[in-house]
Structures are given as C-alpha cells and as structure tokens.
Amino acid sequence: MLKIALLSCAHTHAAAYAGILAARGDVDLVVADPDGFGDVPAERVVGSYQEAWDAFDGGPDAVIVTSANADHKELVLEAARRGVAVLCEKPLATTVADAEEMVAACREAGVVLMTAFPVHFSPAVETLRSAVRDGALGEIVGLTGTNNGKLPEGRDWFTDVSLSGGGCLVDHTVHVAQILDAAFGEPTDVRAVANRILSASRAGEGAETGGFVTLTYPSGVVATIDCSWSMPDDGPTWGGLTLQALGTGGQLTVDAFADHVGGPGQWLPYGADLDALLLEAFLDAVRTGRTQEPSGEAGLRTVRIVAAAQRSVATGEAVALADV
C-alpha cells in the first residue's frame, strides 16, 4: 500500500483524485481539508496539513497538492524537506521565482516532482504529439488551441488573484501550453490580450475572464491559445480542450473531451479517465523514484509562458521568454 496525503480540497480536482485513489485498493489515503470545504468524499479527512503529515507511521510516501495556487509553494517545499514525492496541481506556482525554487528544492532533495496536467494523457493529444514527431503533417506552420470552460463555482479563490495569481490566463493557458511544450519545446516570444466581460460580476477584482495567448517558436511556427472561461453556465459540459495543427501535409484537429454520448441537454462522457491515467503515472513514479512527464520542469516552463503573457497584457507588446 502506498501512503498518500491529498493536501487541501481547494482545487476542484481534489474530489476526483480522492475518488480514483480510494477505488484503486493499493493506496492508503488521507485527505487534508484545512479550509473546511467538506465536499471531498474520503474515509479519512483531517482538518490540518500537520495532521495529514502525521497520519502515517513514518510519514506519507507521496503527497498530492491540490491547494489554491499561491499555497503550492510551501507545501511542495515541505514535501522536499521531508523527502516525499509530489504531484502538484497546475499551475505549478503563481510566479516564475516560486516555480524555480520548487523545482530546485525537489531536484536537490532527489524527490519526484510532477505537475498535474491530465490532458497530457489524452489518447487524442498523443495522436497529435506523434503526428508532429513522425512528420505526418509535413512542415507544421501554425496551431490554434482552445481550453474554454465555465468559471469554477463554489471555489471563489480561482478568481481571487492573491490566491490564484490571476484569472483565465493562469488557469487555462497552461494545459495547451504544456502540450505545445512537449511537441515543440519553448517559444521565443509571447503576446497576449485579455479582458473581463465574461462572468464579470462573479470574477474577483483584477481577474481576467477572456484571453488569447500567441506563442512564436524559434522555427517561426505560430500558435494561439484561447484560454477564456467562455463556456456559458448553462452549457452541457464543463468545457473542453481542442488543438488544431496546420502543415504542408494537411490539417489535424484533436478534441480531448469529444468522447461523449449526447442528446438534448445531455452530455455523457465515455472517454479515457485522464485523471486516473495521470495518477497511475504518478504512482509509478513514486514506486520507481523516477519522475515522468509532465514533470516539475514542464510545469515551470508553462508558468514562464503565463508570466510572459501577463507581462504582455500589461505592456501591450510581445515579451521575449528569455526576459521572464
């Protein structure tokens, strides 16, 4: 049995992770809910991080950090101090400096650090990565990615910039950015625009709810990510993620959450459980001690893109990634 502590119920993914881990049978799980959300089903829920650290003889084998973004850093650094493997929710951190410190601490401690990008495990996304790798689209010239969703409900910290680090630029840019990172490496510059017209009355002060992030790669390949919370509240599903690649050999569009049975007002997803695949990879990394992708480094690189995007929104000009 692996001893796992889920640290915080702040993130909406916490309940899904707890449910999957509880059902596995090879995990002894304790959930820390210091904010008292009270809606993550688990056999053992404790009211503080300290109780979670102390819940197992000899401490946990691994922790999963599902706190508000701004709290990731202290929890990951604590895991590094204790020599415990970490899966940290995305975005890895709210600043580049924090992300760098977290990655460095885990590296120096020899601790596994992975970033929770479930879409990395989507079979559709793997099809796109392999098409890029194998040259199936010829020379790729450009891409358009979308990660649109509803503004999260019941978790107001998502648009409290002191806890989240920002609005949709922070929450939704990184998923597509990580797929692009795995396929194309790091961009040279980032240009972004943002606004707050969607859900303006619900979003916290200063949190953008709509945005485009345009990345330019060393080859000149151009990619734009629509990171807006533009799925209406009455939409049939939470949102989705698409990525379209265009090349001299044709076009490929993948829709990571397309697998569903529909009907008027109906949306029954049947696709691969990406959260379960992510946790499987993480538990494998815990057992072997070898980090898998998406790594902490991948998380850091996407945080750098977000920071560049935020600076671009502020300056109105493209920002070189090297300057971030």
Binding site: G138, V141, R191, G220, V222, A318
Partner: peptide, 9 residues
C-alpha cells in the same frame, strides 16, 4: 497584433 509563418519547404 499579428504573426505569420510561411512554410520553408
């Protein structure tokens, strides 16, 4: 703002 990429090949 705008970006364009032309296939080299």
């Amino acid at each position: 703002h705008a970006r364009e990429h032309v296939a080299a090949s």
